[in-house]
Nucleic acid binder design. Structure first.
Length: 582
RNA sequence: CGGGGCGUAGCGCAGCUUGGUUUAGCGCGCCUGCCUUGGGAGCAGGAGGUCGGAGGUUCGAAUCCUCUCGCCCCGACCA
């Protein structure tokens, strides 16, 4: 045994299990739902402090640092420059950008001893803009891309899935500064390409989708998604071409007008207590797609009627954009009753005296069913233009399975994904509100044109595990693995085993290989289970084959491929394998 | 924020319905010894608990009631 002070055996890139803290668990933690969360806890990478707040243990920080290193290399290679901004911000800076209301309760605020309101930063657009407005006075200083790796704080309404949605998380955020839109386009493309390289080096499968800009503002935005059933984002992707978008943003190709004669007269039917689309549909024996859903939204004290097909859902983000509003909300029951002269459930477009906005699909429907604006009444054989008109036609719904691609008209598929990265063309949103201006060649004062680029580092790790694990544990891709090699002497009391194991450990260390030695006094089965759980890519076993033939066993975690090597050849052998797994 | 569920040893759980023979239990882990060494062994002994917290009902509360804190799930919300 070695005393805790005897660290002579530990080098920068090596570690003995008994000298570190890798508290593995045989059973799943009871508060974990998704595989990545369970495995991160079981493998001893993280422990929960409180909801959405996690400590990283040695194995966890090792992986975190691997991701950080890849990000730094690629960001630096792309010509961006690292900085570090404070996590503590004054609230007044958010007042200037007008984002206090945008973040709402997600913003973690507190009052300092002077009574000043301060916040833990959820993101850094304001801080960076405030910083550079004093430093980038001239076009000569641009283009410039600055980045940092920083902890962000968001008081999430509902943290979940372990590190996938937490209240405190690590983010690499970058900001570009250009003199004009062309410059921004170049910077944006550079970051876009850099993100592709970063994720490829992490060996993550990802797709890039068009995204809504949400709370960030700006116009163009892309998200980097890792396809996964547990993802919180929904993606619409063309089955043929490269079109892919977040469902918030996704557009479906216009639906063909129904080819049906308008002959029947409109007819009133009694639908006692039959309110929902589903109820009316089964009561009348008519598919939901033949019905029009009439909803009411409120904003700025005014109300509006919204029409979508019965089997479609209103996309409030699109609707708000159409109405040039930041927020809109579904009208309350009282409003609906007043506007329709009927209980909720019988609203229709005919005879309404307010602004009506219809989804594009609605105006192509023929002989449909609508509410009668009268209790217990619906109308059949209703037709756009003949029976009602609208004030505005727009795309205001979510795309659904069965919709066609807006680019090539082939089928769209709907799936889920984990948002790993998000890039935005901010334009002058922040430079204007915070006053970040520069002088151009002719001495004219102009707002700096900005972009913002974020990557969730914890999410890269969790998403990697989601994509790469089996029933026994994590299967680390070589670039992110906490150690490249695990050396397992099956019995530490066997002197010859330990002698060889420590020799290999030292030799690999000399060669710069990252290696962990399982020097615990445990039975082989126990160690193998842990080895599979923590998922080190290459396992070298000193055991049976060594005793019998003087050979070491090399096992590759990802392929389960087993090979043997003599002690003298082990180092080059292992290095070759590491190479091939990079 | 709405709905549901759960807090009992480091971890995973039983006990609660019907209050008292339970000195609060089981599995894993932990400590000591023996034994064992290629897929989470075995035997023996042992440590570890304000039953989340506060108040109440009662002769008596892990168990019943009230409040409170924490955690998880569904929804709403969300770079």
């Amino acid at each position: 045994m070695f005393s805790p002070l005897d660290l002579s055996f530990n080098h920068d890139n090596t570690m003995k299990w008994t000298h570190t803290l890798i508290p593995t668990l045989k059973e799943d933690p009871n508060d974990a739902e998704v595989d990545s969360h369970k495995l991160m806890v079981r493998s001893g990478m993280i422990r929960r402090l409180s909801a959405g707040v996690y400590s990283y243990l040695p194995l966890g920080i090792k992986v975190l640092n691997k991701v950080n290193a890849i990000i730094r290399e690629e960001m630096n290679a792309a010509g961006s420059v690292e900085i570090l901004l404070p996590a503590l911000q004054s609230l007044s800076i958010f007042e200037l950008s007008g984002r206090i209301s945008v973040f709402g309760n997600d913003l973690l605020c507190m009052t300092d001893r002077h009574g000043k309101e301060i916040a833990l930063s959820p993101t850094h657009e304001e801080v960076i803009t405030d910083l550079i407005k004093n430093e980038l006075g001239s076009y000569k200083n641009m283009p410039l891309i600055l980045y940092q790796i920083q902890t962000k704080f968001r008081d999430e309404a509902r943290p979940r899935f372990g590190v996938l949605r937490s209240r405190e998380f690590l983010m690499k955020d970058a900001y570009s500064f250009d003199v004009d839109a062309d410059g921004l386009n170049t910077s944006y493309q550079t970051m876009y390409d850099t993100y592709c390289r970063i994720l490829s080096r992490c060996q993550l499968d990802y797709i890039v989708v068009e995204a809504d800009t949400g709370a960030m503002g700006g116009d163009v935005s892309h998200e980097f998604m890792v396809p996964n059933l547990n993802g919180e984002d929904v993606i619409a992707k063309c089955t043929k071409c490269d079109y892919a978008a977040n469902l918030e943003k996704a557009v479906a190709a216009d639906i063909e007008p129904e080819d049906e004669a308008i002959t029947e007269e409109r007819k009133e039917v009694s639908t006692p207590n039959i309110c929902t689309i589903h109820e009316v549909s089964s009561f009348l024996g008519i598919e939901p797609r033949r019905m029009v859903k009439t909803l009411f939204y409120s904003y700025q004290k005014s109300h509006i009627a919204v029409l979508v097909r019965g089997d479609h859902e209103v996309n409030e983000a699109k609707l708000a954009k159409q109405l040039s509003q930041d927020t809109i909300e579904l009208a309350d029951e009282k409003t609906v009753t007043t506007l329709t002269n009927a209980p909720v459930g019988f609203a229709g477009p005919i005879g309404l005296n307010i602004h009506i906005i219809a989804d594009r699909a609605v105006v192509n429907m023929k002989n449909c069913v609508v509410g009668g604006n009268k209790a217990d009444t619906h109308l059949m054989n209703v037709n756009f233009e003949r029976d009602f008109t609208v004030d505005q036609i727009a795309d205001i719904r979510f795309a659904v399975e069965g919709d066609k691609c807006p680019k090539c008209n082939h089928l769209l598929s709907i799936s889920r994904g984990i948002e790993i990265g998000h890039v935005f063309k901010l334009g002058t949103r922040y430079s204007k509100t915070l006053g970040a201006k520069y002088l151009n060649k002719t001495g004219k004062e102009l707002p700096i044109v900005m972009g913002s680029y974020g990557i969730g580092i914890n999410r890269i790790i969790a998403a990697t595990i989601e994509r790469s694990h089996d029933k026994d544990g994590i299967v680390w891709p070589m670039p992110l693995a906490p150690y490249e090699v695990l050396v397992v002497p099956v019995n530490i009391k066997d002197r010859s085993f330990m002698a060889v194991a420590t020799k290999i450990y030292d030799d690999l260390c000399e060669e710069g290989v990252e290696v962990l030695l399982d020097d615990r006094d445990q039975r082989p089965g126990f160690k193998f289970k842990d080895a599979d759980l923590i998922g080190i890519p290459i396992r070298i076993t000193v055991g049976k084959s060594y005793k019998e033939r003087g050979e070491l066993e090399i096992k590759v975690r990802s392929s389960n491929e087993i090979s043997f090597s003599s002690p003298v050849n082990i180092v080059p052998e292992v290095k070759t394998r590491i190479q091939s797994l990079q």
